[in-house]
């Protein structure tokens, strides 16, 4: 059974590109673009890995990450955070809130696939 990735990202063209390369590599992919309802989708989809953007409409990726880690049912899901802001304080915040990996836009497709694969195999 294909491993499942949930993309929480509101940039439609980025979603389309990442979704394409993941599907091409044999992953199962769901997408979600609204920060306010992202946790509900995570709970229902139960993905193997979450790719989570920081700047989302209605609720930030940092807030979603905090709520995710506080929920025992889904709290251990590996999270790759994406951000268009490359400041050190954003990276520090993401790691402090429990992100497994942090990537700054722009990134290469192969790096995204490598990190998602690694997080799925060994989140630590």
């Amino acid at each position: 059974m294909a491993r499942h990735v949930l993309l929480v990202e509101d940039e439609a063209n980025i979603v389309e590109a990442i979704r394409f390369i993941l599907l091409r590599d044999g992953w199962s992919v769901s997408t979600h673009s609204n920060g306010a309802t992202a946790l509900d989708t995570i709970r229902s989809v139960k993905p193997d890995v979450i790719v989570l953007d920081v700047m989302l409409p209605n609720k930030s990726g940092f807030d979603i990450l905090q709520d995710l880690r506080a929920d025992p049912a889904i709290g251990n899901t590996p999270v790759l955070m994406l951000t268009a802001r490359g400041q050190k304080k954003d990276r520090d915040t993401a790691m402090a809130f429990g992100a497994n990996h942090f990537m700054t836009k722009p990134f290469s497709n192969s790096d995204v696939i490598d990190v998602i694969t690694r997080l799925c195999d060994d989140p630590t």
Binding site: E11, N13, I14, E16, A17, I18, F20, I21, M55, A84, R85, G86, K105, P106, F107, S108, N109
Partner: peptide, 18 residues
């Protein structure tokens, strides 16, 4: 604006790479 630029560049890079 910086966020918009980074997002557009990311999308162009990922899509053109495909």
């Amino acid at each position: 604006t910086l966020h918009e630029i980074r997002s557009a560049v990311t999308s162009i890079q990922s899509t053109s790479s495909i």
